[in-house]
Design a protein around this nucleic acid. Structure first.
Lengths: 233, 233
DNA sequence: TCTCGTAAAAGTGCATGCAATCGCTGTGCC
DNA sequence: GGCACAGCGATTGCATGCACTTTTACGAGA
């Protein structure tokens, strides 16, 4: 073995494994409840068991896999209740971020938020789903940063990453793009006038809508084997 | 090497390492910013580097140590801002839990909460700090559970554990016990009448007060080397 | 004396091998 | 016929060794 690692070496081998295995889980290539045996994974990705073990440990901390001592790892089974709970938490966290953003964002941050938001209107008209998705992520990240609270930021980003697999289809629904922008608009307006309560409520409503849109899809999603659907983050 | 591991073997070796190293960090035996060299730790606890590495990985996920690729691990440095941010998050999370509890607790849960709360009044009169601390933890855990949201519960418990080292002295302040009980009382009352908004606000205020009480201590705390102060959780 | 370059030392990252544990299966006993 | 236990295969947990990266120390040149 000991190949020269010809692939793109972005980060350490463990990082690659985390992404590789994580992607296969979130894309549904590895099904919930499926057993993840270290030797097979090591052979599959042509590395030794050591980085696989460490990767499984990290994925376990991320909530994507479950691990029991001496009994190996399995792909985490996300129940409908737990999923709802995560979306609910996400709504609350986003509300907090929006509220804090309204109260704490610097003038520069507010301007940047508004400018980017206005710019993304073009993408809605062009129906550029992929690009809009990128801006959408940017937009929300701005809110998380704008809260000026490192720990809230961490909690929010963590929750978002755990929800990632269930969010990917939210823009496949017809008209979702325009509605999303409108909802963003309410949030931005509230933030610009420093109305924390309104911003929080708007953010919560926004996520709740995404939640409902995704929940239906998630139910279907967990059934099918799925191929290798591209995942951005 | 390969000693017969005479110590209490509760769980795997890695678990022991996580607790051993984690304890030394939260008790201040290992100082913030201190370098954690794998070989030394392995020698110190008489195990190989492999479990030490995995333990450091987990501690890193828990936020107790920081790790940079190829550059080793150091005890996480908690800045005053980050600490404030964590307490702030804690206040928001507790508020959410209290609000949800007011809206969702079953009758049985409400009764249990009230009964335990009333029982703890005795501990206040007796000035039984240690016992009250135990009930205090119980009380808050009831709120987290009562929210009936697994993910919120996880986020809250995680944040609480990260704050644990900075909370241990909160009841050393004179009169804090009685005040704490009074604050709890406001929360319980609001929950019993199903007033989510009031419960949330009361919980937030409660944590904010604890935060202020602890912040002062934390500033002092991070300076001294500390011996081996017992930590419950 | 300061700076830059290079090489050794230290330390992390990964591969491999062995020991311990779990789960399963087949056989003996009740 | 059912249950318990022992042996065996499969798989995880840990130890050790080597390769690669980072850091530090030392020396040559300006």
């Amino acid at each position: 073995m000991s190949r020269k690692r010809s692939l793109i070496r972005s980060g350490t081998t463990v990082d690659q494994m985390v992404r590789a295995i994580g992607d296969r889980i979130v894309t549904g290539f590895l099904r919930p409840g499926e057993k993840l045996d270290e030797a097979s994974l090591a052979a599959r990705f042509d590395v030794s068991r050591t980085p696989v073990r460490e990767a499984l440990g990290r994925l376990s901390a991320m909530g994507l896999v479950e691990r029991r001592p001496n009994r190996g790892a399995t792909v985490a089974v996300v129940t409908q209740e737990h999923l709802a709970s995560m979306f609910e938490s996400m709504a609350e966290l986003e509300a907090i971020c929006a509220r804090f953003s309204a109260e704490r964002m610097t003038t520069a941050e507010r301007r940047a938020l508004e400018i980017e938001h206005q710019a993304s209107a073009r993408l809605v008209q062009l129906r550029a789903e992929e690009d809009y998705e990128y801006f959408n992520t940017e937009f929300h990240t701005r809110l998380y940063r704008g809260a000026h609270s490192k720990h809230i930021y961490e909690l929010t980003v963590m929750t978002r990453s755990r929800l990632a697999p269930f969010r990917r289809a939210q823009f496949m629904l017809p008209g979702r793009l325009a509605k999303s922008w409108q909802e963003h608009n309410v949030i931005v307006t509230a933030i610009m006038r420093g109305d924390g309560a309104a911003a929080g409520q708007a953010a919560k409503d926004h996520v709740s809508i995404v939640s409902e849109a995704s929940a239906v899809f998630a139910a279907v999603d967990s059934m099918k084997p799925a191929g290798s659907i591209g995942m951005s983050c």
